[in-house]
Write a protein that binds this DNA or RNA. Structure first.
Lengths: 339, 339
DNA sequence: TTGAAAGCGCTAACAT
DNA sequence: ATGTTAGCGCTTTCAA
């Protein structure tokens, strides 16, 4: 159980099993992969031998010999934002039944880190690579486009897919939220967001939101952008700051539900009537927001579905089926009760 | 970009790079791994050749030759419960800087699924395997104990570690929560939980909680256990059900913060004064609960820290350093304002 | 500082 | 139904 490097482990190989069972290696290999015809009696002997020596196949050797791994690389910006575990969950549910394994890497929203991870994961010759969003460094795009494997870009379909894209239009979500709030009669808007340099999808929602309210002759009366990642406490303090700095705002668009729920909590604590004095809208449709005494006005995103579709696309491609270049899983505006 | 099976990709090998640079394969290999002495001039030529052909190393071949991968297998019960992404985040932060990659698998809280995943991940000859909890099927334990690699059991230190355990005592957390509520004068308790057949740690907290209140002469006046996973909506409806069925309860222990926050929302919506009419306690110390108008009474768990320590243990073992068999990251009772 | 030879443990292709 | 042969692309000796 020591092993300075940690990996000599089960020293047994196919050869040992074959000797034990009195057959050739390839026969053992066939039994293990359930491939080719094997006599019932032989299979039993081989299986007994496998159990006897406690043989664990070596997929590194197997993958090298067969020129293919059952690994699927996935590169996401963060594990701290609940949306990515949700995507991962969907992906995992789709692929694990077929024996694929997810190798997970995190960029922390840095495209240069993404480039390095693309290279690192490609070196494992995965069956597919799943990346987040449609913005990548030219190097990344080039590697992905020429690696000769299935590439799925998830979350976002506002760009030009390298291979396959599965997601939704964040621009459209921003527009529709703006239209909804305008329709409810709000005119003096605030925005509360988190680090937009890095969260490119939140940025796109904000831009589309602003364009839409301006087109309608309404204005952005003020905004607060916190430097770090989104969180409930950040949303809570940011809304307090926004109200301190700017009067007369009647509706606030938050970069996502975490931030918006923080905003709702601030209003509860400060005795601000929602939506009478202030309307609040978020993005994602988290359970939590819908379980609030007043359900949050937000956009329900299908994160799990994105992961599941991405996984299915990988399987379909693997099976030689045609896969559309872009799949829009859509979204749903939840009117809620905070706007 | 097709590739029926998705993995012939960058057809270039070391041999191609070597030919291009006019050196032998091993020299290219040395340049790539920055191992052994290389003349400056040679290095430059090799690097140029690598860039020219767009060579991506094949770590499958490399791992086979060097008898070791830089993969770390991780097996968790779920991605739906925020605690596991948190652990994953800590693990990732610890290991990714050293070039290790996490291969993630999910058991859905089934120990038989865990067994299969242990076998599947061992077949990748990972540098280490990280599993959740201290309860495993005998087969799993046996494979893990004899695989000759670093094994870390995370979350829980209430058992007998296979190799290394990093976590906290859930029994102690249950006891201390009970002691805290007893100290505040509560005597008629309720419990609201989720699927305890599967979440063994939640079960252990509950048992320790019950033992403690009984020892103090208090009683469990009623409980509601919802069948599925924990969630805010589940906690909300379960508390409503508990209050319908049982009168006179003055404090409710929830299986975790998600459930407890749902309970708080129910009280808000139903006009139940917290903690005057009903006290609420959770487990995990999620941000969300602490950002509530009344911060939740709960136990702060160090999930990120567990992942980070587990990763560090793997690195230390890899570096030949001694690693303690059990690391207790501890927890902290947050008094909050709901009890 | 560089290279030649010999595998790592498995599977594809071709027998038998 | 089973076996033989020849690698997969790299790294580890061991030489030079």
């Amino acid at each position: 159980m020591k092993g300075r490097r940690g990996f000599q482990q089960s020293a047994f190989t196919l050869t040992d099993v074959a000797r034990e069972a009195g057959v050739s290696e390839i026969t053992v290999s066939r039994v293990i992969r359930a491939k080719g015809a094997i006599a019932e009696e032989t299979r039993r002997r081989v299986e007994a031998a496998i159990r006897k020596v406690g043989y664990v196949p070596n997929r590194i050797a197997g993958s090298l010999a067969s020129a293919g791994s059952d690994l699927i690389g996935i590169i996401i910006p963060s594990l701290g934002n609940i949306v990515f575990p949700d995507v991962l969950r969907g992906l995992h549910d789709a692929i694990s039944g077929r024996g694929f394994r997810a190798v997970v890497s995190v960029t922390d929203y840095r495209l240069d880190a993404e480039r390095d991870l693309v290279r690192a994961l490609l070196s494992w010759r995965p069956a597919a690579l799943i990346v987040t969003g449609c913005e990548h460094e030219p190097d990344s795009r080039h590697m992905l486009a020429h690696a000769g494997l299935t590439v799925v870009e998830v979350m976002d379909i506002d760009g030009d897919p390298i291979d396959i894209a599965v997601g939704m239009s964040h621009a459209r979500a921003g527009r529709e939220t703006a239209a909804f709030l305008l329709g409810r009669g709000y005119r003096r808007f605030g925005y509360v967001g988190h680090d937009l340099e890095r969260d490119l999808r939140a940025r796109r929602r904000r831009e589309a939101f602003l364009a839409t309210i301006r087109q309608a002759g309404a204005s952005l009366a003020g905004e607060v952008i916190v430097p770090g990642p989104s969180s409930v406490p950040a949303g809570r303090t940011a809304l307090a700051a926004l109200r301190d700095a700017h009067g007369g705002i009647d509706a606030v668009y938050f970069s996502n539900d975490d931030m918006a729920i923080g905003g709702v909590f601030h209003c509860m604590a400060a005795g601000i009537a929602v939506p009478a004095s202030l309307a609040i809208a978020g993005f994602n449709g988290l359970d939590m927001g819908q379980a609030l005494p007043q359900p949050l006005t937000t956009v329900l995103t299908r994160r799990y579905e994105i992961g599941r579709c991405a996984g299915q696309a990988v399987l379909d491609r693997f099976d030689g089926l045609a896969v559309p270049a872009a799949t829009d899983v859509g979204f749903e505006l939840l009117p809620g009760a905070t706007a």
